[in-house]
Design a protein around this nucleic acid. Sequence first.
DNA 1: GAGTTATCTTACCTCGCGGTAAGATATAGC
DNA 2: GCTATATCTTACCGCGAGGTAAGATAACTC
Lengths: 229, 229
Amino acid sequence: MPKSALVPKLAPQPHWKAFASRRRDPASKREAVLKTAAELFLEKSYGRTSLNDVAKRLGITKPALYHYFRNKEEILLECYRWGTGLIEESLAEIAGHCGTGLEKVAAFIYSYAQVMTVNFGRCVMRLDEGDLSSKARDEVRAYKRKIDRRLRSFIQDGIRDGSIAPCDPKIAAFSIAGAVNWMCVWYEPAGPLSAEEIASQLARTLTQGLARRKPEALRRAAAGGSSAD
Amino acid sequence: MPKSALVPKLAPQPHWKAFASRRRDPASKREAVLKTAAELFLEKSYGRTSLNDVAKRLGITKPALYHYFRNKEEILLECYRWGTGLIEESLAEIAGHCGTGLEKVAAFIYSYAQVMTVNFGRCVMRLDEGDLSSKARDEVRAYKRKIDRRLRSFIQDGIRDGSIAPCDPKIAAFSIAGAVNWMCVWYEPAGPLSAEEIASQLARTLTQGLARRKPEALRRAAAGGSSAD
DNA sequence: GAGTTATCTTACCTCGCGGTAAGATATAGC
DNA sequence: GCTATATCTTACCGCGAGGTAAGATAACTC
């Protein structure tokens, strides 16, 4: 199904159909609500997105939404949960890999960057936690802290095994997270850069730095930096 | 909520006094409004900060604010302008320095990070542009693009003069900007890390990378990196 | 096909926001 | 002091938001 070249492309098509009929299929309708809500939250922010906006894009009316969610905040929280689920997945994958700390950090950057190209993933880092109730906010924060701890531990591993230069793991982790999270702001799916391209460039720049390296140092790092042991 | 008695510490002291008397001093009162507004915008976001909140913290009532600003958005825009002014200052300073592209990038990171520890500076990168009218948004965006172009040109200089490894300047600039901008989220003035400490660590990590370098490569880079002492 | 139930709509409520009108009050100039 | 003016307050308006009540209607079950 080719995208019509003339239409600005942001224009809606697919999961509107979820509500085309009144057939009983709560699961997929709930999902449709969530996806359009995530879209709108990213376009206009949570605060400026009304439930009427969400309903209109789905071709229904506001009160219908209340058959699938208790209130507006629950929609937001579910977006967060879906997104953190995605991150969890890709993080679990890395945990399996063994290698130097530096390798694990690079893998982290790579897969985390990919998640930041998916709407639910973007929601996690781009939407404002302040819109959540304090209970839900605690849940999300706990999750984010978990991610942060993991990244820091990779960095500490790297310092220990000699693949990473001594540094403050806290600041290093924040700078990596910041660089990748910033994708939420500038990345556009329709843009010229593919997710993989960005992910690998980010991983390289952040681990190797901007500064030019001597060829042998480069070779060493590319090999995994583990040749010293 | 009980507030006046045992407020945490971020709680206000100084420029509340600006409105203690009704002496005619519009300039400093306007500034006081701006500073408390910036504070609140960072604490609760623009959308969740009502003009009543601002007024209350200043010890006055909402309509009094309209003697100093035409509307809420003007307050926000002035916060942006103040912040971009700060960035402009520190950027102009760097433009004077000559050196390798890498050195200029390091200097950029260092001083930009410092701006991100000041409330008005934080406003520029942390507040949501979507809250501005389209005209004001264009103004702010143009300014941000200017900063981005400048950073990219430093990177391109570095690639040309050999101090920076070949890379996509766009992605490199975004990753640097992201890492530093992220400070807006996690930095706390009362925290254990000083602004200088963070700034120099960021400059080092981003230019040199996480990966350990061979001594000679390190020496070479250190000879060209003025900000990492 | 009839009854039941999930689904969705129309109409409405309340609340807090940004913003305004009009009046009170202190300051500044003489 | 007296006046004029800048400053600030009390009272209010309209709007759009999130959310609810109650009824219409389509889809399933038997």
